[in-house]
Simulated scan of single mutants.
Amino acid sequence: MTLAVDLRAPVGTLLAEMALRELLPRFRNLAAGDIREKAPNDLVTAADLAMEAALTPALEALLPGSTTVGEEAVAADPAVRDRLASDAWVWVIDPLDGTANFARGNENFGAIVALVHRGETVGGWIFDPLADLMASAVKGHGTQINGAPVAIAAPPLAVTDQHAALSVRFFPPDHRQRLTGRATEFASNAPRYSAAKDYVRLLRGEAHLALFYRTLPWDHAAGVLLVEEAGGYAASPLTGKAYGPASADPGLLIAAREAQWQAARAMLFEE
């Protein structure tokens, strides 16, 4: 993974520079025509498009011969996602994670980049431009926040002392009803509706557990690597399978420790 190690700092620098140039000037400064639906209940803004347009050639230039899978490129042409199954080095880009929040002027958003090779995530970056916080991970080389190594602290033993970020809105109705009820057993349940924000909260011990139904690679490839390299555990609570960027399995449960993951899966999903 020497290549990914060498790229950790340059990609972080590039991601931060692009976010400061393309995202922050547009935050709370979007015109009505800058926001539209690309699908029902799925927004895209001028900031998403500008950020992805800037990142795509810049990342490919950092790693000659690489290609990209950007969220907005896939929205325009779903076949772009097939690149994840190739032998190429693939940059996976979420130019603005938390678009709906951003469009409302809500501060819960970030930018995400992952590097995937032969179906495995080998590098991950999440940048929170408002907090000037960069989280990065390289497979086998740990997780850092703003250049300092980070390890996820052990969670409280009691569920009633754990803080959760359970996003249940896309689960099928039967699961959603049960999950909504059981979420009340945690000390709190406050998803930020931005995977970028919730993964950073897990790394910092501000949340101990997160749950998602949709497992899109631009939302989760980087975050899962960040958590796993910091000592956490992630897998589908519905199938038990480990997460992969090319996986189509729904459901992703992320915890500070595997034992906690097992207990949470039983509590949330067993009858």
Rank of each mutant, 00 (worst) to 15 (best):
T67C: 15
T68D: 01
V69A: 00
V69C: 08
G70C: 03
G70A: 01
E71D: 12
E71G: 07
E71L: 06
E72C: 04
A73G: 07
A73Q: 00
V74M: 07
V74T: 07
A75H: 06
A76Q: 12
A76D: 11
D77Q: 09
P78D: 06
A79P: 00
V80T: 07
D82K: 09
D82E: 15
D82T: 14
D82S: 13
L84P: 05
L84V: 03
L84E: 01
A85T: 13
S86R: 01
S86M: 06
D87Y: 01
W89Q: 11
V90T: 15
W91D: 02
W91M: 05
V92P: 02
V92F: 00
V92S: 04
I93N: 03
D94V: 11
P95E: 05
G98H: 06
G98V: 04
G98C: 12
T99G: 11
T99K: 11
A100R: 15
A100G: 14
A100H: 15
F102V: 10
F102Y: 15
A103V: 07
A103W: 04
R104V: 08
R104I: 05
G105S: 12
G105Q: 03
G105F: 10
G105Y: 12
N106I: 13
N106Y: 09
N106V: 13
N108H: 15
N108L: 13
N108T: 12
F109E: 02
G110M: 00
G110V: 01
A111T: 15
A111G: 13
A111I: 12
A111E: 10
I112L: 12
I112C: 02
V113R: 09
V113H: 11
A114Y: 02
L115R: 08
L115V: 05
L115I: 09
V116E: 07
V116W: 00
V116C: 09
H117T: 12
H117I: 08
H117R: 14
H117W: 10
E120W: 10
G124P: 13
F127N: 07
F127D: 08
D128W: 03
D128Y: 05
P129D: 04
P129Q: 06
P129W: 02
L130I: 10
A131M: 11
D132G: 02
D132Q: 14
D132A: 11
L133D: 06
L133F: 05
L133P: 05
A135C: 14
S136N: 08
S136A: 15
A137F: 08
A137I: 10
A137W: 02
V138F: 08
V138M: 08
V138Y: 07
V138T: 12
K139T: 14
H141G: 06
G142M: 11
T143C: 14
T143G: 12
